[in-house]
């Protein structure tokens, strides 16, 4: 049973604010998310704001009625970021022009949730973890003898980079039955890129969680 639950949790490649649980309870939760992201890019002056959508799933354990600890896996797809003017190098030659790029993220976070109620539970959540950021090739629009051409700037080809992630989330949870809870929350996260520009996410989400007393 436990193995199945863990497998189901791992299968959800999208992370969420962890489910929340009273003392001795375990919870598994899924949370669709939507919001906005600020994406910085090398060679640009200002970050671009794009929409984001994703899903998250988590597993948590109530160590106290007011505190549970857990982990979550969250993934988000961001809209294409466009920058009106970028100054980049293409084949070691400086070029300027509009730039665009797609980003997806997956983050694995350790989560501590402060719980402040019984039936209706305001929550405050802090998370820290690591993430992977998959980015498409950046495309710089420029002119050549063949007309308008898309260039891939040096060092901005498609690839996956690592982030250090911190997040904070506040929400309200309601226990429908002894075994099911629902909730809403809003939160923000900061992804500090390792060799890449930072990424900020602000999201709202709805959470559905299954709660039970595990035998471990």
């Amino acid at each position: 049973m436990r193995a199945h639950l863990l497998a189901a949790c791992a299968a959800m490649l999208w992370a969420a604010p962890a489910a929340r649980a009273d003392r001795f309870e375990a919870a598994i939760a899924v949370r669709p998310t939507g919001g906005y992201a600020r994406v910085a890019e090398a060679g640009t002056e200002a970050p671009a704001t794009v929409r984001s959508a994703g899903i998250a799933g988590g597993l948590s354990w109530g160590v106290r009625n007011w505190l549970d600890l857990g982990g979550e896996l969250a993934a988000s797809a961001l809209g294409e970021a466009s920058y009106d003017r970028a100054m980049v190098l293409v084949d070691d030659s400086p070029m300027a022009g509009p730039l665009r790029r797609m980003t997806r993220t997956a983050q694995l976070r350790g989560v501590a949730t402060l719980r402040l109620g019984v039936a209706w539970v305001p929550t405050v959540q802090l998370a820290i973890g690591a993430g992977a950021r998959q980015r498409s090739s950046a495309l710089l629009r420029g002119q050549s003898v063949r007309g308008e051409t898309l260039y891939v700037p040096d060092g901005q080809a498609a690839g996956v980079t690592l982030d250090l992630v911190t997040a904070v989330r506040v929400g309200l949870e309601h226990r429908l039955t002894p075994s099911w809870t629902v909730g809403i929350s809003v939160g923000a996260s900061q992804a500090v890129g390792v060799g890449t520009p930072d990424l900020q996410l602000a999201e709202a989400s709805f959470t559905l969680a299954r709660v039970w007393y595990p035998g471990w």
């Binding site: 009273d22 226990r175 007393y213 471990w216």
Partner: peptide, 10 residues
């Protein structure tokens, strides 16, 4: 022992 149960009245 490790047994816990709750009802809908919390």
């Amino acid at each position: 022992l490790k047994a816990h149960a709750r009802n809908s009245d919390h």
